[in-house]
Nucleic acid binder design. Sequence first.
DNA 1: TCCATGTTTCGAATAATATCGAAATATTGC
DNA 2: GCAATATTTCGATATTATTCGAAACATGGA
Lengths: 121, 121
Amino acid sequence: METLSAAERLAALGHESRLAIFRLLVEAGPGGVNAGAIGEQLGMAPATLSFHLAHLARVGLIKGQKESRFIHYSADFAAMDELIAYLTRNCCQGEACLPTVAVGDGTDERCTAACTSGERE
Amino acid sequence: METLSAAERLAALGHESRLAIFRLLVEAGPGGVNAGAIGEQLGMAPATLSFHLAHLARVGLIKGQKESRFIHYSADFAAMDELIAYLTRNCCQGEACLPTVAVGDGTDERCTAACTSGERE
DNA sequence: TCCATGTTTCGAATAATATCGAAATATTGC
DNA sequence: GCAATATTTCGATATTATTCGAAACATGGA
């Protein structure tokens, strides 16, 4: 994933309402939730909700599938993975990181839990 | 971490220039880089760079430490961890996720690599 | 066909953010 | 103290995002 699309996805999540929508869908799991139910739970006006759903879908973080009158939205977990991988990629120059935070029992020397640099094969 | 501060951090990363700065600091590791070097590598005007550095620092994603005339900025890896943990928290209702993407050799049934739900203890 | 329901599009007001030149601040070496 | 360097603050402008009422667009059932 390039910086531009990663930034677009992060920007999409960088809004309280959209983050709430995304989190709701992540917690809901692959089954998804229809638009009306999302709006009801988050107390959003239909037009506002639609605007944010379209934004999240445009950047690939969620998908909408029409089922009769309803549209089921669900999180795109692969996209979330890509985004997280992008953030931590080549951390600390790809070498085993210097320890800056205590991680668990001290057997782990990575700078951060999410950091993948210098991983044992 | 609450939704508001997570959204603020994601919004901070949701800008091409700031994401480039943050990624540069993540790759640089705990040692950090001074402001001038960042601006030189990314081709940013001093005022613009300062604006973005201040933004990232305000939301806690980076830290700046003054060393003589220079200010060494470094990524806050703990903050990055928190943010990633927030995104994946209680995924799929906290139950073992349904598999929606193939993960490695198929022994993993999580919906996504980053998902922590239903983890074995 | 007609109505109710679920969702999106349009439009327009409001608000927030990004950019960067120029000036200001801080530090160091001479 | 003065000049050079590193960085920030100020100020003004341009651009983009957010909100939501009202209208439009499907779909399904009577």
